[in-house]
Amino acid sequence: MRANPDARGLLQIAASTFRADVLPHVAPEARFAALMVANALEIAERELKGLDTAGHSMLAALALLYGEDADDGLSGDDLRKRVEALQHRLCIEIAAGDFDQEGQDVLMDSLEAIVQARLGISNPKALGQQ
């Protein structure tokens, strides 16, 4: 049974209300803490909304290296476990030196796409920087 609005809906409206109606009136000595609160609410909101999307982006990124293991049909815990398993496999291969000589371009593309997917949740503003 799901209440309406759900957690995601509540966080969304709490975050936007906090930024629009509370933050401008916060005393200077509390401003840093208030900005952190706004930031944390927004990260949580993006995570609730976009975790599966990020998971699929990471799976697609790993598919650059392991095409046969990508699966668009996964969601939730199954998706998370698949991403974790492939990331673990990649870590082992990296540590074993499999990318020391060749394959670095594909690896770098894959790693960048993985990080971009996570940045989309934790700090989308950092995506555009150089």
């Binding site: 952190m36 990260i43 940045l119 934790s122 700090n123 150089q130």
Partner: peptide, 20 residues
């Protein structure tokens, strides 16, 4: 601590800087 919690969430940003 909220500050410590948010520092923990900076990992992807730091990793992106390393990849750049």
């Amino acid at each position: 601590s909220l500050e410590l919690a948010l520092t923990g969430r900076m990992l992807p940003e730091i990793e992106m800087d390393m990849l750049r």
